[in-house]
Amino acid sequence: MSYLPYVIAAYCVFAIVLGWDYVAPRLQVRQQLRAAKLRVMRRQDTIPRDLEAPLTRE
């Protein structure tokens, strides 16, 4: 008797889970780097205002 559908299902499970195992950390790294870049951009936006602040008070 052929159990081909069961074999295909099992190998599909293997491929899907390992596919997730490959993709998930790459997405996390990308997310962390994007967050870091946004932080840098926010910091750059705030620096000129901070420098001007003491002058306006004077």
């Binding site: 950390p25 996390q28 994007r34 870091a36």
Partner: peptide, 23 residues
């Protein structure tokens, strides 16, 4: 290695080297 790298970046998120790497 990939997962450890992601966690390492998360922990070091405020550091200059991460900002340079992101840039």
């Amino acid at each position: 290695l990939s997962r450890a790298r992601a966690d390492n970046l998360r922990r070091e998120s405020g550091k200059d080297w991460v900002a340079r790497l992101a840039g």
